[in-house]
Amino acid sequence: MEPSIKFNKVSKFFGNIIALKHISFTVYKGEITALLGDNGSGKSTLIKLLSGVYSPDEGEILLDGKPVKFKSPRDAVSSGIGTVYQDLALQPLMSVTRNFFLGREISKGLSLDFQTMDNITKTEMAKLGIDVADPSQPIGTMSGGQRQTLAISRAIYFGAKVLILDEPTSALGQKQQLEVLKTISKVKKLGNIAIIFITHNDMHAKLLGDRFAFLNRGKVLASGSKKEIDMSNLRTLMAGGDELAKLENELKA
């Protein structure tokens, strides 16, 4: 397996606050790395380091073995980091095709080339298992799961080698959550994309994750492949190690 992104003792400080301290973990191509952690564990800071919003104060980030320093989100995108944020950055009143190509439209002369863009949208969405009957429909008519797929498909088409999914299932109903999980596993099968799957849901993490990293209070509590991590301990790790045990004891007392 080729390592795609490697964090090497990365730290990030905001004034006297230590947001992340000596974070090390590796993400591989064609694998899903589940990044788990509670609120305030430093997940958002980590995503922002990856997507070029912040740069690290200590340590280095290696992309395909080479150290990288992203100057801006645009810089990160052109280096192949695709981030799908929770709000998806979609326009509800605009069509599927217009959303897919927003900001990167294909024109023939001065006019938008809808034939080409519609075809690409259909083809790319079909790769992830969504049959778009009419790409000129406003995405207001799509389900939450389908919109998620649209955002993922768009990131991949525009060159994402590392795909960061920020809690893609958290705002969805049960059925749509499954739809998104299917989509993510289809992206994995493409084989050349490293997926960082950020989630609160230990069931989803267990189901999809090849590799796990647990963040707690700015530190990596544990990381490793499915075999290396004690899966029965997943929930405890997510809740922040032995803090849950402490609470249990307190409640008993």
Binding site: R74, Y85, D87, L88, A89, L90, Q91, P92, L93, M94, R98, F101, L102, G103, R104, E105, S107, L110, S111, L112
Partner: peptide
């Protein structure tokens, strides 16, 4: 029918999302 028109709709629909997509 043009990119500029697409940007006009996006700027009004959701400016944050529009900026995020460039």
């Amino acid at each position: 029918r043009t990119q500029y028109g697409n940007w006009i709709y996006a700027s009004g629909g959701d400016p944050v999302a529009a900026r995020a997509t460039g």
